[in-house]
Amino acid sequence: MSRDSTASLSTGSGRRDFLAAASVVLSGSLAGCSGVFAAEDDQVNVAGSSTVFPVTEAISSAFSEENPTVNVSLSKTGTGGGFGNFFCAGRTDVNNASREIADAEVEQCGNNGITPLEFPIATDALTVVVNPNADWIDCLTVEQLQEIWRADGAQNWSDINEEWPDQEFELYGAATTSGTFDYFNEAVLGEEFNHTSEYYATERDRTIVQGVQGSEAAMGYFGFAYYSENPDSIKAVAIDDGDGCVEPSTETAKSGEYTPLSRPLFIYIAKESLTEPAVRDFARFYMERAATDLVSEVGYVPITEEQRDENLEKLEAAIEEVTE
Rank of each mutant, 00 (worst) to 15 (best):
A218E: 01
F222W: 01
L261Y: 00
D205A: 14
S262P: 07
K235G: 00
G220I: 01
S228F: 00
S215E: 11
R204M: 11
V237Q: 07
A218C: 01
P260R: 07
Y200E: 09
T207V: 13
A253T: 05
T180K: 09
D240P: 00
S255H: 10
G190W: 10
S255V: 04
Q213C: 11
T196C: 11
Y226N: 02
G179H: 09
R206Q: 14
D205P: 08
L261V: 03
N185R: 15
S215C: 06
P260Y: 07
S228D: 14
H195L: 12
T202S: 14
T176C: 11
R206G: 09
K254Q: 15
S262H: 12
Y221I: 05
A225L: 09
S233K: 08
L189Y: 04
D240F: 02
A225Y: 08
Q210W: 05
E247H: 09
M219E: 00
S255C: 02
E186G: 08
E216C: 10
V237T: 00
R206L: 14
E192R: 12
T202W: 02
N230Y: 12
R263Q: 15
I208K: 09
P248R: 09
T252A: 09
E203T: 13
G223S: 10
I239N: 03
Q210F: 07
T259E: 14
G179R: 07
F222H: 12
N185V: 04
Y221E: 10
E198G: 09
D182E: 13
A238C: 08
V209W: 06
T250F: 05
E251W: 08
S178K: 03
G190L: 09
T250M: 06
A187M: 05
I234T: 04
G211T: 04
Y183T: 11
D182Q: 15
